[in-house]
């Protein structure tokens, strides 16, 4: 918080309150104090500790740990997982959103689906992991059904990357629906009719009008989904109880590690690496948002 008077009429303000900092600023002090203590301080701590050894001396060892091969592998897997689930989630979510907008605007299907998407997009963690374990795990509903009709199915894939991908789609697709529906709603039926009247067929409409128009919001939503998957922890943690397949699980390992002392600050370095990746995705996202806003307003 700055102590210099805000631009505008500093003279008028100070003559009224008799202070350099207007009294009205007191009203936001509790909020700023709380944010400072529980949001900004922890963030700063992550950065500072990433460059400090357990005794608080500056070091680059933690950051150097990021270049170790198992960390790099985990980072790569995290990015792969996020990319794949964002891509599949964005495509399927866009398809689902299109199916919804092509029906009646206030129909039952659309209302239920939108409400469900709102719930499922933030569904995750232990509950989601169990829901999948009892569906397609070793003793899961689908697995057993398949075995009963003679198809040799097993649930082992669920606890690996392939499993994470399917489980992540469970919240990625609804998130895509939520983010992409407004963009689809912004597409006016007149554009298709205008294309037709100008001599274009359905293909021309998609090729020249719908796809160019929807590409920025689609890419924006894709980046949001990427960041969402990259930051996700609980589902993976509940599904895969040990090891560090992906970065969030590496962080868990570093935090809870009791065998190797002095590893806590590696967690900070890992967290810093995560922030960088997410920040890049979010910066691209807001750039995309501005770009698509130029057309769709």
């Amino acid at each position: 918080m700055t102590s210099t008077p805000v631009d505008g009429e500093p003279a008028a303000r100070s003559s009224r309150t008799g202070r350099r900092v207007p009294l009205s600023w007191l009203g936001v002090v509790p909020f700023l104090a709380y944010i400072g203590l529980f949001l900004l301080l922890p963030t700063v701590l992550v950065v500072v500790q990433a460059f400090a050894d357990p005794d608080g001396r500056p070091t680059l060892d933690n950051v150097r740990a990021l270049s170790e091969s198992y960390v790099l592998t985990a980072f790569w897997r995290s990015i792969e997982l996020s990319f794949v689930t964002a891509l599949i989630g964005a495509v399927l979510g866009a398809l689902l959103a299109y199916l919804l907008v092509s029906g009646p605007a206030d129909g039952f299907v659309r209302r239920v689906a939108t409400a469900a998407a709102g719930v499922l997009a933030q569904f995750g963690g232990v509950t989601l992991a169990f829901a999948f374990i009892v569906s397609v795990g070793n003793q899961g509903l689908i697995t057993l059904l398949l075995q009963n009709i003679g198809i040799g199915a097993s649930g082992g894939w669920l606890y690996q990357m392939s499993g994470l991908i399917v489980v992540y789609l469970y919240f990625q697709i609804p998130l895509m629906v939520l983010v992409f529906l407004p963009a689809l709603d912004g597409v006016k039926p007149q554009w298709r009719e205008a294309t037709e009247s100008l001599g274009g067929n359905s293909w021309a409409y998609w090729r020249h009008v719908a796809v160019p128009l929807l590409t920025p919001p689609f890419l924006g939503a894709f980046l949001l989904l990427f960041a969402n998957a990259f930051a996700a922890y609980a589902t993976a943690a509940a599904l895969i109880s040990q090891g560090g397949v992906i970065i969030p699980l590496q962080i868990r390992a570093a935090i809870t590690s009791e065998t190797v002392l002095g590893r806590e600050n590696v967690a900070n370095a890992l967290a810093l690496g995560m922030v960088v990746v997410v920040a890049v995705a979010m910066a691209l996202y807001s750039w995309m948002q501005r770009r698509s806003a130029r057309w769709l307003r």
Binding site: P42, T43, V46, A231, A271, L272, M274, V275, V278
Partner: peptide, 9 residues
């Protein structure tokens, strides 16, 4: 900022 990062802080 992912919650996971905040936890570390």
């Amino acid at each position: 900022i992912p919650a996971l990062v905040l936890v570390v802080g």
